[in-house]
């Protein structure tokens, strides 16, 4: 296999919680929020890696740490073998050209007081497009993402949600990045519009040979776009596998529950695993296996207090569960 484009090595992002005045007087060490707690990931050139998990599992923090929009507590992020966490500010600004982020909320990620030309033109100007050419490049980009050239002088509020997301994509594409993180990029859109944007992202991937990290809570979308999928729970990756394999032979109990919880149009009567309880907070995560409190496996035992490591159980299939067997049985296929 090729050399990975992005390697995440034991990445941790911990945030100190606010201390009260009394606690500060007593010099109490702040409680930590373990948003991302020891994540390892390899992302290969040209692939789409899906990252799924429920709200609060740390997937957005992971994305921001990979782009160094927030500083990791420890660990490394290697972009083509170069540790970007160590780059000085100036080089980091140049490095940003290679990696871009598409946001969830197309209403918040566009400055309401700036025109489309200024928004999409900013990255162009910052990375050395001659001033005379900015406008025409912006027009070309707008056309590429399915908008009209005449939209160049409009303000964001004059567009619909889907169109705004196209503007966001155009801005990300402007610097010709190689790696794009899409953080819930289609979650806020209606189904029919969502389909348009997914198709656009896939076309662009082929045309520009992009690598995606596709973050979402929507398993149907992620299964549709990803080559491989990583499942995250409370700051850790619990399962990583090739897409079809993950859906056919999920091994981690959390993945199984997640898959069975998706409401489906095509398959209505089936066994459902309904998890009891709600997600524990990442402020004081349980020791050992983080899923222990909600786990439904009959085998679960005090051994689960030993933190399970991500281990290989099949070709390109990694699970962090002590009870995952090497070759899991094939589940009944979801799609006929």
């Amino acid at each position: 296999m090729d050399r990975p484009l992005v390697q995440v090595r034991d990445l941790k992002v911990h945030f100190p919680m606010k201390r009260s005045f009394k606690e500060r007087l007593r010099k109490k060490t702040p409680t930590m929020l373990y948003a991302v707690d020891g994540v390892n990931l390899d992302i290969y050139p040209g692939e789409t890696l899906g990252l799924v998990g429920e709200s609060g599992c740390g997937k957005s923090t992971l994305a921001r740490a990979i782009l160094r929009l927030c500083e990791p507590t420890s660990g490394q992020v290697l972009f083509e073998g170069k540790d970007i966490c160590q780059l000085p500010a100036k080089e980091m600004r140049a490095q940003r050209k290679e990696m871009q982020l598409i946001f969830q909320d197309p209403y918040a990620s566009l400055n309401p007081r700036r025109t489309v030309e200024e928004i999409v033109g900013l990255p162009l100007a910052l990375h050395g497009t001659p001033p005379g050419q900015v406008r025409s490049r912006v027009k070309a980009l707008l056309k590429r993402v399915g908008l009209h050239e005449s939209h160049v002088d409009r303000f964001p509020h004059q567009f619909s949600g889907g169109q705004r997301q196209r503007i966001v994509i155009a801005r990300a594409l402007a610097v010709k990045p190689r790696f794009i993180i899409a953080d819930e990029a289609v979650s806020a859109l209606d189904v029919s519009i969502q389909a348009q944007i997914i198709n656009l992202l896939q076309e662009l991937q082929q045309d520009f040979n992009l690598t995606y990290l596709f973050i979402t809570h929507d398993l149907s979308v992620v299964s549709y776009v990803s080559d491989r999928i990583a499942v995250m729970y409370l700051g850790q990756i619990v399962e990583l596998a090739e897409t079809q394999r993950l859906f056919d032979r999920p091994m981690h109990p959390y993945t199984k529950a997640l898959l069975s919880a998706i409401p489906r149009v095509d398959k209505r009567t089936r066994e459902r695993i309904i998890l009891r309880g709600s997600v524990p907070t990442p402020i004081n995560p349980p020791p050992g296996c983080r899923f222990y409190s909600r786990c439904f496996l009959p085998q679960k035992s005090p051994y689960c207090l030993i933190p399970p490591r991500l281990r290989q159980v099949g070709e390109d299939h990694y699970v962090a569960c002590h009870y995952a067997v090497a070759e899991p049985p094939l589940l009944e296929r979801g799609v006929g």
Binding site: R96, F103, S109, A174
Partner: peptide, 11 residues
Amino acid sequence: QEYVEAARTVG
């Protein structure tokens, strides 16, 4: 706001 973060990601 996200647009500020967006400006930062483009450098």
